[in-house]
Nucleic acid binder design. Sequence first.
DNA 1: GCCGTTTTCGGCCCGACTGTTTTCAGTCG
Length: 747
Amino acid sequence: MDNGEVARVLAEIADLLELTGGNAFKVRAYRRAAQVVDLHPVPVARLAREGGLAELPGVGERIAEKIAELVETGGCREHARLAALVPAGVLELLRLEGVGPKTVEAVWHRLGVEDVAGLEAACRSGRVLEVPRMGPARAEAILGAIGRHRARAGRTLLHRAIGHAEPILERLRAVPGVRAAEVAGSVRRRRETVADLDVLVSAGDAAPVVRAFTGLSGVVAVLAEGPTKASVRLRCGMQADLRVLPPDAWGAALLYFTGSKAHNIALRARALRRGLKISEYGVFDREGRRLGGATEAEVYRAVGLPFIPPELREAQGELEAAEAGTLPRLVEEGDLLGDLHVHSRASGDGRSDLEALAAAGRALGRRYLAITDHSRSRPLGLDPQRLAAHAGAIRALDGRLRGKPHLLAGVEVDILPTGALDLPEHDLARLDCVVAGVHARFGDPAARNTDRIVRALRSGVVHVLAHPTGRELGTRDGYALELDRLLEAAREEGVALEVNAMPERLDLGAEGCRAARAAGGAGGDLDRRARRRAAREPPLRGVGGAPGVAGGEGRAEHAAAAGAATPPGAPRARAAARARVSRAGGGAPWCSRTGGRRGGCWRSGWSGSGRGTRWCWAWRAAACRSRPRWPARSAPSWTCWWCASWARLGGPSTPSAPSPRGARPACATRRWARPACPRRTWRRSPSARRRRWGGGSACTAATGPRSSWPAGRSSWWTTGSRPGPPRARRLGRRASAGRRGSSWRRR
DNA sequence: GCCGTTTTCGGCCCGACTGTTTTCAGTCG
Ligand SMILES: Nc1nc2c(ncn2[C@H]2C[C@H](O)[C@@H](COP(=O)(O)OP(=O)(O)OP(=O)(O)O)O2)c(=O)[nH]1
Ligand SMILES: [Mg+2]
Ligand SMILES: [Mg+2]
Ligand SMILES: [Zn+2]
């Protein structure tokens, strides 16, 4: 069982526990352990053998037992016990957007819904409405989520995500008042694949930014929109999340929005232990005084840590390493001296001739490029004769280039199923750079694949092992492999392991590189060797010792490919975009015909929980009645908002329909008296408001020992300014709180 | 279930937005 499989079981235990009423913190513990296992470079099977499981962060005695059981027996009794309690289809319901454990539990227990199809039927028939707190808007949202679930967008490759993000950033940076706009989240952490685009904007006034964002030309639906953040679905299928925060909170905001979630939680817990609080608004002490947050480094410093690069922020031990001063120095773009895996037009993979490749390499600042076209078993691959001619051409050009950059005559020789190389060794030995890789027959068992590759490495003519795992992101997993044995052979033979930069490959990836370092520990040595070598001689002669990493493939080619990409069209007018949005069924379900005024209720100015609602609950029904949105169907009686909304869902609307609810005309069903939409006469108690603004539904701030907020809080009420964390106040008031405050005073 | 610069017991990150109900719970970032 590999780490991915173990992680899946642990995560499923978390889901099962959640649906069977397990302790929420226990659920979190399993979920975190699953992530740690998933990202860990060393197979947990080996850790289990060697007794190293407990060293994984978030893995204690009990979870270690489960992992050991899993790798030994392929199963886990606890998992089996829980799985017997929950139908498989019910677990799948958790994957629906906007549907969480509470909703799943409710539809499963109260309605007997056991899979996605069952939930869909319940939404269409109206049965879901029997569940508490379930109304037509939620039913509609669930139907939408089911549709998207079936289309299953999946995760997007990093380079595509970056491409989608750029025009958005450009547009937002042009909004007056915007100081900075960056993409955060997993894109900034440079994960190989990402689920969405997380865009952070620094601006004193959030409202225009949110408007510009929801009005972007690529937006097909607005999923949520408030005074400081919004979420949209883009035409490309991705979701994009915007967050706007004031400039002096930039560091804290970037830290928050870059994540990962587990890193945030660990860092905030650390702050808590030191009597501090970290949020996206900054660092605060017990008295609520703000200690900083302008830069990320400032936030880390406040909890006694050095800056941690985004790529490491996965709660995989980087906080401990930072504390101990043992954070690794990352290989940066500027460390890349050359590219040892480049295809030209001479074989199928390349599109450029040698001159163009050299020019692209020069433009990227590479000191050397190895031209490594495919060998004969690949389509259009080189046989010995063509190879010799090609090598001659490369060397001739290299002579003319005078080191700008150095060109190396090479080849990417196929490793045949037997482990033999696809070209005679005496031909390979004449080249400057021999890259060897597996390109066909991926289905063999691990031992056989490993034998095959190890035999090739032992040939003595191979410099670099290309794309060592053979994976293609989103298409196929790597071939089965005994990575440990492969690393050992590479170390003995002095063969470098490639870090293939083709966006679909990224092979070795982060975990593979860490495994290689753990095995031979020579990545850093190779760096130094490479630098020294590049300073005085062409690369690769004399590479020996341990497996290191060699950059390769795709860099130059991709520069060319990226240049050819069509730039996205200019953003259209906001109004047009909005119209499209509403046609697409996005945005608020209520009263969107009445226009775009945002920021509190149209009539009372009240904005309850702080969202940019057009109608407070008391007013919206009345307003809708006075401007009927739905033509009064043949129904003679008045239709309350609830039932009218239900009718929009396409639910049964005639008295004879069998639906348990909403079927009979108007509101007899719901027994809402005709003047049912009352003006609000009650007034929320200040104490309730205080609780609400304590932050977090558990409201630990209001009850727990670390709560220091309430001290100053009553004044928020009496002054009418918006309560909340200090930085929220400013931004919130500008966005929408002014009207809200006065309306409250009026009552 | 995990974990400790207050703690080996008793905590567990913090905030925004939405739908719905008559004052918050649920979900998400
Ligand atoms: N403090 C805190 N921050 C969170 C939480 N969930 C998400 N975040 C922050 C950190 C995340 O990196 C950032 C963006 O959230 P996403 O859901 O988009 O996750 P992320 O981009 O990390 O991965 P993804 O590829 O989108 O799945 O928001 C949370 O529960 N607490
Ligand atoms: Mg994200
Ligand atoms: Mg996101
Ligand atoms: Zn290849």
